[in-house]
């Protein structure tokens, strides 16, 4: 069941977040789709960890501060966020845009994170394997191309979003474009600094990802020092929904490794 929305203040920004479970803290950074729907995937994590999912600045109902203009600002912002939360070291997990943000954070400062889990992260490129373009896909393509399991896509397409849902989706798209429009979903400098990530890292990818092809996992494997890669078969970009059980099990086994 979805936990109630709570609030956290970072500088002058009032942040919406979901928090549930007990145990060591696990900070989950969401994708460009916005604050996620609370699915059984999150229940599985919350059964063992104190799961914290903040809404990114500019997404949904959270305001866009003038001091966040690019992905580097996002990484520094989450270092501030962790300082303010005062809960010590966290397991850091990020999906897509959230994975990119988590990796940027880790190249800057790993002192507040125990380990890093990147689920189909944006941020890198593999020349010759261009990413899909979710800014240019039609609304229907944008949904269908997220999932290997088209039943999930069809269920989403069959729903009629409320005006508020539509407003949040517009805000999400606007902020996503601020961070990822050009260059599309990557920071050309990031690959040069992956060796700065000094915590154990797991990269999880859906084998059938149409947005960021799973071959991108090789680039992360080549750059991050202590890394393991898990490719989940029959799975698209929306890993936590498409193969939620497998994704949760992969994360939990990695977090329990020591």
């Amino acid at each position: 069941m979805a936990p109630p929305i709570t609030r956290h203040k970072v500088r002058d920004l009032d942040v919406r977040m979901m928090r549930a479970g007990a145990g060591a803290p696990l900070l989950f950074l969401h994708s460009a789709g916005g604050l996620p729907v609370w699915t059984p995937f999150f229940d599985k994590l919350a059964a063992q960890y104190d799961v914290i999912i903040p809404e990114h600045p500019g997404f949904g109902d959270t305001a866009t501060p003038d001091w966040i203009r690019n992905i580097g600002d996002m990484a520094m912002y989450y270092l501030d966020f962790l300082d303010g939360l005062g809960i010590g070291k966290v397991h850091l997990v990020g999906h897509s845009l959230g994975g990119w943000t988590a990796a940027e954070l880790a190249t800057r400062n790993c002192t507040q994170i125990l380990d890093l889990t990147l689920i189909a992260p944006a941020g890198l490129r593999v020349k010759g394997a261009p990413s899909g373009d979710n800014f240019i896909w039609s609304a229907e393509e944008s949904v269908r191309n997220m999932f290997h399991n088209q039943k999930i896509a069809e269920a989403i397409l069959a729903m009629t979003p409320s005006d508020e849902d539509n407003d949040r989706a517009l805000a999400n798209r606007f902020m996503a474009a601020r961070l990822g429009w050009e260059p599309r979903w990557l920071n050309p400098a990031l690959a040069r600094w992956l060796h700065r990530i000094s915590v154990p890292t797991q990269v999880i990818w859906g084998a059938n990802d149409k947005l960021l092809p799973s071959v991108y996992a090789d680039a992360w494997k080549a750059g991050v020092p202590d890394v393991r890669v898990e490719i989940i078969p029959e799975c698209g970009h929306a890993v936590t929904a498409d193969k939620g059980d497998a994704c949760a099990a992969t994360i939990l086994s990695f977090l329990a490794r020591s």
């Binding site: 800014f135 539509n166 407003d167 517009l170 798209r173 606007f174 996503a176 474009a177």
Partner: peptide
């Protein structure tokens, strides 16, 4: 159609 609506061309408020 998607080229008609690049995100950010209109403010979020105007798009809403």
């Amino acid at each position: 159609d998607p080229f008609n609506k690049p995100p950010g061309y209109f403010t979020v408020e105007a798009a809403m």
